[in-house]
Design a protein around this nucleic acid. Structure first.
Length: 596
RNA sequence: GCAUCUGUAGCUCAGCUGGAUAGAGCACUGGCUUCCGAAGCCAGGUGUCGCAGGUUCGAAUCCUGUCAGGUGCACCA
């Protein structure tokens, strides 16, 4: 169904046209002065210049036209021209109620599905094998998951890909470290042609110690680093023993990563890694050479990606290192190649740390230039800022190290659990609720900030349950559910149910009108959130719904309302409210507990 | 050095495809519960929108310059 704002715009555009002005001046928007009106149209002021007339005169002309027109009469309770030339609009209660009535009776609150659903791939994991997830993985995971859910909800076909880091230097470093420790392993025996063991000779816990050690040595020791680079090259060139070991590393890591992402309520459709696209590399490189895009520069194989409009010359996109090994760029390009073959995506959205912007700019340009993706494929870089500590610097543990994600989650959960002491719940229920509330605190604290900006992690604030926080939204939803439960019991004692047959009545008071106006914005808000890939705007919206509901709630006694038609109408209104809240939270990747 | 992002209330942040008095939350003060969850609601003060110019009827928003901070600049990912 059509959005309210679109109806208003159409109405106003028609009015402008009928009065002899260009249609575009009918552009209406939400009022920025709610005390004066609900919607506004500023077109008269813009038109004043073009038509050399007084803005107020135009506004009055339009207002008069709308008032006498049939459809205008149906929509508006008020159409007012105000100096210097604003058009202030208020909707009729009947129309508003009718609109929400339809929203409630239609799937997805009446949101229209896209004519042509797009195939969208969201690349947002960034996890590396052999390394535990840490706070740096939090933002891409949370934001990406939300983008995925929102896109899917809008009616598109969406694939989330974790895109594991399982191919680069880190693998060479681990191989080197393992070689040093266990030179006798069959994996390191040259010329060995037999089968390698099925079982991995190490556990995830071993790896969690081995990788940091190797990484550290590689930074400090030149010879060690050279060894790791050589191992990387050998491994990438297909040395059997190395490949077998890396398979073990991946096999051991994935279940652990899955578990940790699941704790965050983050799920991927694809668990592909960099290693999965290696077969595409030789052909891809060969074609780039043949087509004349790739050439040797300073020993490495590169593709130029500068464009005329650049203020500064971009470094070229590196395809192969001078030692012939593949790079980050190479793998990302090959991944795009494979995605194009398998899924033919209309868009690929990368949710990764914003510091990688240059890298992706190069990859995108190279992919377009060399024809790896179609010209119309939209490649989007959604760079996220970092989560900082209260000192404004990247979040660290007290000891100054990088915090593991599972510890952070556990800390938040524990803190919430302590606060729920006084609730009448079983220990089990309280645990479960604190998990959901804690996660909401963490995720909402993150998502309510613009993705591209850094933000300060403040545990106290996020879990404070006051103000614009995840728990506050959850609380509002839980509270409504509680009322609905009570109502269901109450209704049992009455002769017949009225809720189903009762239509939504026009609002009876200020609080109810405001609530209805907010709820009526669901569709257009979702559209904006999707288009701008801006989950923080969804947070803001849910917060507005919650505020509007709480205001309404204090203004009206729902269950004791004597007019049963009114009461049934209110029940339907708050049902719509809670449905939208729960849906919205779910799109942020946040669950709503039964009680809290 | 070059590029790029950010600078809004004491703190944390919205607003930035130009519009009417720049908004929230926290913190601070006072009030509201014989009644649906007070983790709530109501009321109260706070701003050189980094600075300086410019465009415009109109600028936090667009343009230029400038200051401050962050980030990135070819064989790591």
């Amino acid at each position: 169904m059509k959005q309210i704002l679109d109806c208003i715009r159409q109405e106003m555009e028609q009015a402008f046209a009928a009065c002899g002005y260009e249609e575009k001046y009918g552009m209406a928007s939400l009022s920025n002065r709610p005390d004066l009106c609900q919607y506004q149209c500023n077109g008269a002021m813009a038109a004043a210049k073009a038509y050399k007339k007084a803005p107020l005169a135009i506004a009055e002309e339009i207002a008069a036209y709308v008032k006498q027109s049939e459809t205008g009469n149906q929509f508006f309770e008020k159409v007012e021209a105000v100096p210097p030339g604003f058009l202030n609009l208020n909707l009729k209660g009947e129309y508003l109620a009718d609109f929400l009535e339809q929203s409630q009776r239609t799937e997805k609150f009446g949101m229209e599905q896209p004519e042509k659903p797009e195939m969208i791939i969201v690349d947002y994991g960034g996890a590396n094998v052999a390394k535990p997830l840490h706070v740096g993985h939090l933002r891409p995971a949370i934001i990406g998951e939300s983008i995925k859910r929102i896109s899917r909800y809008m009616g598109h076909q969406v694939i989330g890909d974790v895109h594991l880091g399982d191919w680069g230097l880190q693998m060479g470093q681990i191989l080197t470290e393992l070689h040093h420790r266990h030179p006798d392993w069959v994996y390191f025996e040259e010329g060995y042609t037999g089968e390698y063991p099925q079982e991995a000779p190490f556990t995830i816990a071993d790896l969690e110690e081995i990788y940091p050690t190797a990484s550290k040595k590689s930074k400090e020791d030149e010879a060690y680093r050279a060894e790791a680079l050589e191992a990387t090259f050998q491994f990438q060139s297909g040395r059997r023993g190395y490949r077998a070991l890396c398979k073990h590393i991946t096999a051991v890591s994935i279940p652990d990563l899955k578990k940790n992402y699941a704790n965050l309520n983050v799920e991927f459709d694809l668990w592909k890694g960099e290693s999965d696209v290696q077969e595409h590399i030789p052909g891809m490189v060969e074609k780039m050479k043949q087509d004349g895009f790739a050439y040797i520069s300073e020993g490495a194989l590169v593709v130029d990606v500068t464009e005329e409009t650049d203020k500064k010359e971009l470094p070229p996109c590196l395809i192969l290192k001078s030692d012939g090994a593949a790079l980050y760029e190479t793998t990302d390009l090959a991944t795009l190649l494979e995605r194009e073959q398998l899924y033919h995506p209309d868009r690929v959205i990368y949710v990764v740390d914003k510091r990688q912007e240059l890298h992706f700019t190069k990859v995108f340009r190279c992919a377009k230039k060399t024809g790896i993706v179609r010209p119309e494929t939209e490649l989007t870089f959604l760079g996220n800022g970092t989560m900082n500590g209260k000192d404004g610097k990247p979040f660290k543990t007290r000891e100054g190290g990088v915090m593991r994600l599972e510890y952070l989650i556990a800390d938040v959960e524990e803190e919430v659990y302590r606060k729920m002491d006084d609730r009448e719940m079983s220990k089990e229920e309280a645990r479960d609720a604190s998990r959901q509330v804690g996660l909401a605190a963490l995720k909402y604290g993150d998502l309510s900030n613009q993705a591209s900006k850094d933000y300060v992690f403040d545990l106290e604030r996020f879990i404070s349950f006051e103000g614009n926080t995840g728990p506050y939204i959850q609380y509002t939803a839980v509270r409504i559910r509680s009322i609905l439960k009570k109502y269901a019991e109450l209704e049992k004692t009455e002769k017949e149910s009225q809720t189903e047959s009762q239509k939504l009545l026009p609002p009876s008071g200020e609080g109810e009108t405001d609530l209805m106006l907010v709820l009526a914005r669901f569709g257009s808000t979702m559209q904006t959130v999707f288009e701008e890939k801006a989950p923080h705007k969804l947070c803001q919206y849910l917060y507005e719904i919650s505020n509007a509901f709480n205001h309404f709630y204090h203004e009206n006694k729902i269950l004791t309302e004597e007019n049963t038609a009114r009461r049934a109408s209110w029940i339907r209104l708050i049902t719509l409210t809670v449905d939208m809240l729960v849906t919205g939270l779910d799109l942020l990747g946040i669950e709503t507990p039964e009680r809290m």
